[in-house]
Every structure is written in structure tokens, then in C-alpha cells.
Amino acid sequence: METILFLTHTEADGSLGRAALESLTAAKQLTEALGGSSLVAGLLGSQTEAAVGQLAGVGASRILAVTDEQLAQPRYATDAAAATAICQAAQATAVIAPATSRFNRVLPGVSHRLGGAVDTHVSQLGVSDGTIEVTRWFYRQRLRGRLKRAQRPWILLIDPGCYAAWSGEPGTGAAEAVSSPADLAAPRTQVTGIKAPAADAQTIRPDADLLFVTGAGWTKKQADGQTHVPDAEKLILNFLNATRASLGSSKSLVDLGGEGQAVLSFLTHLNQIGQTGATPRHPKGLATCCHGEEPHTVGWRFVNERRVINTDGTCGWARGKADVLYVADAFAVMKKVNELLAS
């Protein structure tokens, strides 16, 4: 029997974001699977009212909230203090929370304050022999493990994209206010802003249906003995504009910038997929001019359907890593693709 705390921060407008609603589904399913357990909801933010309304139909026995202007800033010191206070007030034995950048930063530290345990990047929660069992990946998505822990409270951060977002009739209600811990008063860190690419240069779109990956081939000498980087830029940007796909890249291509070579101006390390890059979740992925080396393709673990355009029919993708490999010139194919999309 567990006291399961669904813990989340709110968005700037006080509502629950998608990752939060997904982990709420996980928390609810777990509570139902573990007979006799209860579900408590915990919120932290500068505003929490809208979220309390969203939680009206969820069946939580209590809704706890720390509502404080200092929590407008995602910041370790204040988030850790507020999260700790909520976990203690809830007397939680298991804490289910969304693996947002804000909570990934802070909840491991909270587990230490509570004398408990933590697991991050959880992709599935289950019950075995009457107790919680967690599935997560190891070695950058190469190996999958199922594990249990004796320690409580056990904080579990659920990766976005693993559960359907919870939706229920909104209602009205009030949260039990958990008083702001003293540590919230005078933080030594101020969040001064967000640095984002201009809207038209925003190429990372986690919610896109398609991941479009570019490799170093786009900058290499082509059949005519020349490079065609400006053409590559145009083809890629036109495709992204037409499809609203998310842009990923191989490491070799993003590294070229640091080496002073001609590069695609809109790529940064944030676009990198793979061992030392991201592992995004998308239903489809199209890789172009990318060799499909293992340190790259481990980043494709959660891309369901995979197609590739490469001039080399023996590239890494041919060895069972893609569903379809088109042995062709990506410049020629993408030009036609863009024409078809525009027509």
C-alpha cells in the first residue's frame, strides 16, 4: 500500500502542461494497480489555481500546493525547498512527476533531502508481486532494465511521450496550502530569461510527427567535385517549412562549426541526435546524408518508422537500422520532395 503523490510544477499561467498530464496518467494507473493505495496531488508554482481546476475529476484524496511568486522562476534552491515541503506534507511513499528540464534539475536533490531514492527517465511503471516496478533504459538506450527499490519515498520521473495525457472534466476546488518554506526567501540565483532562436529559426519541435535528420554528407564534395552548402541549406529549410518537421543532426555535422568549416547556419549542438545528443520521440524519422553509425542511431531508439536517403547502399542504416534505405542523391530527391509538397 502506497501513498502516491503526483507532483508537478505548473506552467506560467498556473495550468498543467502536457508532460504533467502524462505523468498524471501514470500516477493514476499505478494507484489503481496497487490496491488500497491513495493518490495525492501536489503542485508548485507562482500560480496553481487553473491546475487545481484541471485536477477536479482525478480522484485525488488531497490536493496540496505551494503557491509563491519565487516559484515563477525554475530554480534549484526554491524548487527543491517547495517540492520537499509538499512531499513531506503528503507523507508520500512514491512520488510520480514529469521529467521536464525543471524537475530533472531538482528532484534527485529532493530525494536526498527526504532520505529516499530516485529514478529518472522512467518509461513505464508496473506492479509485480504487489510492489512498484519501473522500466528504464541504460547505456544511452541500448539496454532496458526493470527494477524495484526497497527505499521510500521513491521519486520517479516519467519521460514525456510515454503515457497519454490525462484529460477529465475541469471543475472547481481549492488546494490545501502548504506554507512556503523559509528557503524560498532570498535565493542566490535569478533566472533572467530564455534564450531561444528566432521563431523562423526554431527547428527543434518535440511534438512534430516527423524527425528530419541531416548528416555531414550535405557539406561534402558531391559527384561534380564541389560542395553545395547553400543549396543544402535551402533544400533543408524549405522542407522544414513545408512539413514543420523537427530538425536533428549527426554529431559530425554540428561539430563542423567548431572546426571552422562551412556549415548549415541553423544547426547547433542542440540538434544533435545520438550517444552524446538527444533521443527524441517521434512517430517517423527521415535521415539524409547521414551514415547511420551506432553512436548516432542509438538516438533513434524512440523513432518508430525510419527512412533514409544515402548514396551509399552499404551505409550503417542498411544493417537493419532503417525500414527503408533509398540509395540515391539526397540533393536530387529532396528537391523533388519540396516540389511535390509545394504543389
Binding site: S101, R102, R105, Q190, V191, T192, G193, A196, R205, P206
Partner: peptide, 12 residues
């Protein structure tokens, strides 16, 4: 710091 959607949070 890296945050969602290819953005960075700036702190002092």
C-alpha cells in the same frame, strides 16, 4: 542551461 524545445534558460 538546456530546456525544452531547443532553448536555453539564462540564470545569474
Amino acid at each position: 542551461e538546456r530546456i525544452e524545445g531547443g532553448r536555453h534558460q539564462v540564470s545569474l
